[in-house]
């Protein structure tokens, strides 16, 4: 009988030889390098933009994942469909996005395994279904926890959808755990380029309650075009999702239409022209 409980269930040294600790971290007697955390993003996605309208939300992001200035992956879907009521748009580090996606998948299983409302009719009336606001609270706490551990998820997120009362909901969370919401939201370069355009159309909450679905979609498409014109880390193929009471309509292979540089010769005030 071996009287040391900590040895129970362990391979015997006299049978298997000494435990080889080389793969363990240094703090546990191994030769591994110290644990490292993300100090900067590597493969990145650029802006995500979204507008609230009368009965729902439109959200869009292009399909590019850049490696520095290299356009590395051109078919990366950055809008993540969570449930019938919510979509998450992710900018920033792509591997952290994939981690978040796995996290959301397991959250979805946890949420629905016991209550199990997966037929269409059931989920239609499920009062306990997570709203986009609940999802946003969850994600913002994940982000804040990770920043507090000095191990941030290097992302900027937009959560778009409907809340528990089926009212349009749009809010953001970033790598510091900072959260805010508004009738129009944009991350990354979009905060500089798209946000002013969207705010002209939807200056406040009241204006978004007057805005129709078609106008909102058109505004987002126009903004995606401006972003492609001026954001060097963008591409003309993008994903766009509309979330309203009918559910989520997600298109992941949209292409910019009616591109034109006709406006370019009228631009004055910077560059090489002298007049």
């Amino acid at each position: 009988m071996n009287h040391f409980p900590q040895a129970w269930g362990r391979p015997r040294d006299d049978v298997y030889g000494q435990y080889n600790p080389s793969y363990l971290p240094q703090s546990h007697g191994g030769t591994q390098q110290p644990i490292t955390h993300t100090q900067s993003p590597i493969v990145t996605g650029t802006s995500v933009i979204a507008i609230k309208f009368k009965t729902g939300v439109v959200i869009a992001a292009d399909n590019l994942a850049s490696y520095g200035s290299l356009a590395r992956f051109t078919d990366v879907h950055r809008l993540k469909h969570f449930n019938r009521k919510s979509v998450v748009g992710v900018g920033g580090d792509v591997s952290d996005m994939q981690y978040l996606d796995r996290l959301l998948k397991s959250l979805d299983v946890e949420e629905n395994y016991s209550t199990g409302s997966h037929t269409a009719e059931e989920s239609e009336t499920d009062p306990a279904m997570m709203g986009a606001n609940n999802l946003h609270t969850y994600l913002s706490k994940v982000m804040y926890k990770r920043r507090s551990d000095f191990n941030p998820l290097w992302n900027a997120l937009l959560v778009a959808g409907l809340d528990e009362k089926n009212k349009p909901f749009l809010a953001s969370a970033d790598l510091l755990g900072t959260t805010f919401s508004g009738p129009t939201m944009a991350t990354g370069f979009g905060a500089h380029l798209a946000q002013p355009i969207m705010r002209r159309i939807v200056p406040d909450e009241a204006a978004s309650q007057q805005l129709g679905r078609e106008e909102a979609v058109q505004a987002v498409r126009d903004c995606m075009k401006v972003l492609f014109y001026r954001d060097a880390r963008s591409m003309p193929e993008y994903s766009i999702a509309v979330i309203d009471e009918k559910g989520v309509e997600l298109k992941e292979k949209e292409v910019l239409e009616n591109q034109s540089w006709d406006f370019a010769d009228k631009i004055r005030g910077y560059g090489t022209q002298t007049v």
């Binding site: 362990r10 435990y19 546990h28 007697g29």
Partner: peptide, 11 residues
């Protein structure tokens, strides 16, 4: 003791 070294201090 364990068959591998105990964590001695923080890294």
């Amino acid at each position: 003791s364990y068959s591998f070294a105990q964590p001695t201090s923080h890294s």
